[in-house]
Design a protein around this nucleic acid. Structure first.
Lengths: 209, 209
DNA sequence: AATTTCAGCTTACAACTGTACGCTAATTTA
DNA sequence: TAAATTAGCGTACAGTTGTAAGCTGAAATT
């Protein structure tokens, strides 16, 4: 005897819609691999990947652009979560630079498409997207700057410059990491850590001058 | 009385073809403004801008991709010329950092689309393009590294790290400069100069440690 | 002077795009 | 229970794309 048990998971209309919306977002992220950019992503392609009719897309987003902004937002959210994670690890002990870089590199390895999105749109063809990504990076810089002022007792002005330099170096290293295998990533991480040390030493030296 | 003088500038077939090819390249560069990327550039669009029939494009390039590689090459060439220019200016006297940054910022301001191409393709959707741009940047780093070894007498290993950090910081500043007006560019330049000084001081400090 | 080469053209076609329109069936509201 | 709302679908259309095929006239070669 075989018994079929059908589980009905109740979902209100609103919840169903939200779920479909998320399917679209996920589909879009999954399309964003090595050789597909946001601007090259067609509405029909996304719809296909999400398993809906092309025209149903409009029930959730007005535009492909609208979807794009959502993706950038989600990516920014992921970045901020990443920072929280790094802070926790730092409080648990360990060199700030080492832990931050390692956390970042882990993030990139595990979320290539999220980081790719940020990088591409940072220099992409939509001014709105460029600005949105720039804002996310600015958040990053400001939080790091706060940390530097508190921990290293540097002036706010110098701390900001130091933080900016560090974030940009880490992001640049991230660019390399996207196209590298695991061992190369470790090597890239090592190099950027040294460079961050240069910046740290230099900023300190400069403020003692 | 009106006299029409027709000037016949003789051009061999080969020269004509080369001229058309250059028109295509120029047209492509001119299309690469704020909101058009290489991958979003259609063959027909380029042909239209170059004033030729779509199918005539194939007499010069096998692909849009082929054209892309040519553009990256030309951009790399422009970068190398830029460096030569910077070296000349430095020999004429002045702070190395100041002159290098100023030269670079001038270049970006005068050749926005060339720099945009490099930036976009550095993180773009074509692995071949990404690699090509990475090579150009590597050139840049190596030449700067040579300079540092010679002038500042640092070890090759440390000089390379310093050079890499500096080039990446300058390129990052370039990203900002693309979306800025003239006065903001000056401000960005000032900030990156300070950051470069951090790196320089830090690398020196580190090697004396 | 006769022949070959070839840069650029026109025409043509199948594939794909965004999106307008109206239908359906199920949920939500009254 | 009756009426209203709406997520998702199918059909349809005009516009754009890459590129295949073959022609033309001028330049280059013989």
């Amino acid at each position: 005897m075989t018994v079929f048990v059908v589980l009905y998971v109740y979902m209100s209309r609103q919840e169903q819609k939200l779920q479909t919306r998320q399917r679209i977002v996920d589909a879009a992220f999954s399309l964003l691999d090595e050789d597909k950019s946001l601007s090259a992503m067609s509405l029909r392609e996304v719809a296909r990947a999400a398993g809906i009719a092309p025209t149903s897309f409009y029930r959730h987003f007005t535009d492909i652009n609208d979807l794009g902004l959502t993706l950038v937002d989600e990516a920014g959210l992921a970045l901020r979560q990443l920072m929280r994670q790094a802070r926790q690890r730092i409080e648990a002990g360990g060199g700030v630079i080492d832990i931050s870089v390692d956390t970042f590199m882990e993030f990139i390895t595990d979320n290539k498409n999220v980081f790719r999105l940020l990088l591409r749109e940072h220099t992409g063809t939509s001014g709105a997207f460029r600005a949105a990504v720039a804002r996310e990076i600015q958040h990053f810089i400001e939080e790091l700057s706060d940390y530097i002022v508190l921990q290293l007792k540097l002036s706010r002005a110098i701390a900001t410059m130091q933080a900016e330099a560090m974030v940009k170096l880490v992001f640049s290293a991230g660019v390399e990491a996207l196209d590298s295998d695991k061992s190369s990533v470790a090597e890239t991480a090592k190099r950027v850590k040294l460079q961050l040390r240069f910046v740290q030493l230099g900023a300190l030296q400069y403020s003692l001058r």
